[in-house]
Design a protein around this nucleic acid. Structure first.
Lengths: 353, 353
DNA sequence: CTGAAAGCGCTTACAG
DNA sequence: CTGAAAGCGCTTACAG
């Protein structure tokens, strides 16, 4: 004779208690696996919970336990770039996998207004919506990190912060990634190597710029400023960079590109301008997304272990939440160069044995 | 002299009440914008809240209000495909934008074990973690939809369900999208047109197959079963399909491909096999992701309004939560064919005026 | 216009 | 091994 069903019912711990002939406290203890509960009552209570399809109300649980079993993912503000990149999906996959495996939910949040960057995160933190926060990338001087450190709120940065060297971080060694990419081109015999970088206020761009310069320096090569351009993580950036580079009287014969996505723009521009890759210009980029292999020509790319980056970040955050000490910080995810056609122009390397 | 700071403090409504010299009830009313509160007390309370940087505890609020201001995003199970697709990012961007704009948070969840598909969603629903759920795609007979309907829990399906025609849905007219794509190829003079489809248990694949056949039928053409292949939403599928098609004695001269991502695999295979697009074979696909334009050759693609799909789905879900009537169901997002080089082989169309 | 009280569904000392 | 009671931080009739 029950009329109203569905969403408006809620089976509570009291209902279970009544049916099992025990107190609510006991039911609660059964749920949480309290040690001093008789096997008999435990079994009875569990059976009734199953029969009624009981699930504890997470809000009530959170209120008293002051824990939400939820991790917040904070997206950087101009999220468009992120979303247009395969990189993001793969990172998210790593995050979801490890969070789900540990029974944590994921709350997706993003900075709303530019005038109040802290509004969204402050709502999460003060509203106790999440137990910890995952920061996807950071600006070079990021107020969010300052805020989180002041609040002593658990978080992990995927990326690196210069201004907050003690923040828990999971990152690649991005000086080294760019060094390796550049070194590979040098080994191919190139001496005129350009760099298509990302936004200058992003630490990642900065680090890779350093690696690029370091490799050139060590080989006694000079970085010509005409061969360096900064942009966004968008294909358009790569496209524009090539229009620029290829009109130079003294063109680079090889370029390092900050991101595969940008490199696609590069390839497209070069095709339209009638240049051959790698014959006219060699290309190496970063991230090694699934499409790199399918580009024409297939793109040499530094695999940064994107999935592992996300997976590990969750791992570190859960460690922090469990008050385990962090044995190392930052955690560095290994990278490796995947050489494909776009940088394999052997004729450019006549002196190599 | 306060020692313990940060995460372990919590300013409550009581603290504000005490400092403002009012009762907690009044503070609560000020927060919720209750009409019968004097401007004076309202102002005083608000000021103190600001001074102490007070944010209401969302868990407590949820517990009593039985509302979470959170929408759940349910990812389909083999999430790998989704994540490897730009489509997903763009959809997510539409969802986040409109949810954030309406002060809703987003909870990201995914089916965990294959033996218990309902576990994750049942936790969300019974645990009262979210107010409504967004389903990204569905199988042809999806137990999740059955569950949600039985529970009378608010949800919107991005996609279409055949078995549950009354479920709130936001979708393209996917018979028409495929019809248009096929029709375009017919208009180019093609009579031998193949179809590289997705997983057969996905409604989307099914609908597009119908549109493809319909267009052929109407033009008096026959769908040769050798020219139809089903696969995943992965590049590999496109690659394999071409190995198959191009070894046929009687090859198609044009193909419709279920997804841009798959089409990239198609293009790659054709390049490797030494065929020219569109000269040897024309290609049209779906989604019109940012990279379509940059493929070689640039890919003709049906723009399905991905961002709008996500945006609208949130809009519909919020309507349901607000008990507003749905004036139409399903909501159909318009599509349009973007013609690019991959399907523009005019020489194949000698008889067209 | 405002306050006291009850209650949302859970957990956890305290006592036995 | 188990129960009664207090409490988490909020909201909302009820009364004035």
């Amino acid at each position: 004779m029950i009329e109203s069903e569905g969403v408006f019912d809620m089976i509570t711990i009291k209902d279970i208690a009544k049916l099992a002939g025990v107190s609510p406290s006991t039911v609660s203890r059964v749920i949480s696996g309290h040690p001093r509960i008789s096997t008999e009552t435990s079994l009875k209570v569990k059976q009734i919970m199953k029969e009624l399809n009981y699930h504890p109300n997470m809000m009530a649980k959170s209120l008293v336990s002051k824990t939400t079993q939820t991790l917040g993912i904070m997206l950087p503000r101009p999220a468009e770039e992120l979303f247009q990149n395969y990189f993001f999906g793969e990172l998210l996959r790593g995050i979801i996998t490890h969070a789900t495996r540990n029974n944590y939910e994921l709350l997706l949040s993003t900075e709303t207004s530019s005038d109040d960057e802290l509004q969204a995160i402050s709502r999460l933190v003060h509203g106790r919506r999440v137990d910890g926060i995952l920061l996807l990338g950071s600006k070079r001087d990021d107020p969010i990190i300052t805020f989180l450190e002041e609040e002593k709120f658990p978080f992990v940065l995927i990326g690196r912060s210069e201004t907050h060297p003690n923040a828990p971080m999971v990152d690649n060694d991005n000086v080294q990634t760019a060094y390796d990419a550049t070194q590979h081109l040098i080994a191919q015999g190139h001496t005129r190597i350009g760099f298509v970088s990302g936004p200058p206020d992003v630490t990642l761009s900065h680090d890779r710029m350093r690696g690029y310069r370091k490799a050139l320096d060590e080989s006694g090569l000079t970085a010509n400023n005409d061969w360096i351009v900064e942009g966004e993580f968008l294909q358009e950036s790569g496209f524009r960079a090539m229009s620029l580079f290829m009109s130079l009287p003294d063109r680079p014969t090889a370029i390092v590109v900050i991101d595969d996505n940008v490199a696609f723009g590069v390839l497209r521009a070069l095709a339209e301008l009638g240049y051959q890759v790698p014959e006219d210009i060699s290309v190496v980029s970063f991230n090694n997304i699934a499409l790199s292999e399918l580009a024409s020509p297939p793109l040499s790319s530094i695999d940064i272990g994107t999935y592992q980056l996300g997976y590990t970040a969750v791992q570190v955050l859960l460690k922090i939440l469990g008050n385990e000490p962090l044995t190392q910080n930052p955690v560095i995810i290994p990278h490796r160069l995947i050489v494909r056609e776009s940088s394999l122009y052997m004729k450019a390397k006549p002196l190599q044995s």
